[in-house]
Design a protein around this nucleic acid. Structure first.
Length: 270
DNA sequence: CATCAGGCGAGAC
DNA sequence: GTCTCGCCTGAT
């Protein structure tokens, strides 16, 4: 077990912010997470977080996954103090971090996310993992499922994908999986690209448009300049920033601010 | 019962 | 290039 003192870290907020669909809270308050074929449990305490894993696993995987070396307080501190709304949003969601998640998993997850709500997105991904992902167990015997490989989804029939309640996204998922398997888009190459180049490459995939491509760039490739524009963000931008959002002030952090705005709006809507 | 949820592709122009 | 329209499904 690893205990870490962390400022600006809230599993609750990370989970609710809807960037990761495989982090969930149990009734006892603990969190369970599946990522990169592994399973991790964690628990929030007063001023620290407990990660139930070895030091090697923490240093080798989860520290990077949760972006623990970055100073989010400093980014919040850079928000223009005259921008009342943004200050409030950043303070409200100050425990959110931009995770470094698996590229392939984010592609499929955010294709599923379109015209969909977080609850159902989770359900769809769970179905996919149970049906097409490798069944695994921790050494304590906890059962979990890895995210399905591209080959598995490329071979899936349309009928079976529809059975996962993916709806019209079934076709997008099948086509995208096939594009990866047949080499039309090379994910290893995308991993090493700059933001603009990576985004252009992702846009070749069926079911990936502007918004989904930016989500993938932000949550998998960690391009903090990516600023996904969804219905929430567009609403806020037109209401609060009619003359345009001041991107020039926030180079290298805009994506983080997007998450604060999204989360603030999501939790305080109506 | 209508409307909406972190959009997108296809077709028209 | 820009615009419109239809789309699976479950929740409210």
């Amino acid at each position: 077990m690893i205990k870490v003192k962390t400022d600006n870290f809230s599993l609750t907020q990370i989970s609710e912010s809807g960037q990761c669909f495989r982090l969930r809270q149990f009734e006892n308050g603990r969190y369970g997470l599946t990522a990169f074929g592994r399973y991790l449990e964690a628990q929030e305490q007063k001023e620290e977080i407990c990660f139930f894993c070895t030091r090697e696993e923490f240093d080798g995987i989860w520290k990077r996954y949760f972006d623990l070396d970055r100073d989010y307080g400093a980014m919040i501190g850079c928000v223009d103090e005259k921008d009342n709304y943004l200050c409030q949003a950043a303070a409200y969601g100050s425990g959110i971090r931009i995770l470094r998640q698996d590229l392939w998993e984010m592609i499929i997850s955010f294709i599923i996310s379109q015209q969909n709500n977080i609850k159902r997105i989770r359900k769809c991904i769970d179905y996919l993992c149970q049906k097409y992902g490798e069944e695994k167990r921790t050494k304590e015997g906890i059962l979990y499922y890895a995210f399905p490989e591209p080959e598995k989804l490329a071979q899936a029939s349309m009928e079976d994908l529809f059975a996962c309640n993916l709806g019209y996204r079934s076709r997008y998922i099948q086509k995208t999986a096939q594009s990866i398997v047949n080499g039309e888009v090379n994910l290893k190459a995308v991993q090493n690209m700059e933001y603009d180049e990576a985004k252009a490459e992702l846009l070749k995939l069926c079911g990936v448009g502007e918004k989904v491509a930016d989500c993938i760039c932000l949550f998998a490739l960690h391009k903090l300049d990516a600023f996904p524009r969804d219905t929430h963000i567009n609403k806020v931008l037109s209401e609060r920033y009619p003359k345009g959002f001041p991107f020039e002030k926030y180079q290298g952090t805009a994506g983080v601010l997007q998450q604060y705005i999204f989360y603030y709006d999501l939790k305080n809507q109506k």
